[in-house]
């Protein structure tokens, strides 16, 4: 079953697809410039020692963002 939720709620090693990015202004631009647009597949590869920021693997590269920035991104994942 598929379900939609915030990127923050994803677990390490979990995969998902971006369905919406609601950030505006500087943050929104930065997120989109890095290729985080709807339809993009991603996988959480790890979290920093204090659980924040989070590291994501997109198709061909890895990027990091803070949890409060991840909150603007909605993903669709395979539910258990």
């Amino acid at each position: 079953m598929k379900k939609q939720h915030g990127l923050r709620q994803m677990k390490v090693k979990q995969k998902g697809v971006i369905v919406a990015v609601n950030a505006k202004g500087e943050l929104g631009r930065r997120i989109r410039d890095m290729g985080l647009v709807p339809g993009t597949e991603l996988k959480v590869t790890g979290r920093a020692p204090l659980k924040d920021p989070v590291a994501l693997r997109l198709k061909d590269f890895t990027l990091t963002l803070r949890n409060n920035e991840a909150d603007y991104i909605t993903v669709e994942t395979e539910g258990e």
Binding site: E26, L27, R30, I31, M34, L36, P53, A55, F61, T62, L63, T64, L65, R66, E69
Partner: peptide, 10 residues
């Protein structure tokens, strides 16, 4: 704070 969105280069 400036957005942290940052590439982790290989």
């Amino acid at each position: 704070s400036t957005p942290f969105v940052m590439e982790l280069p290989p």
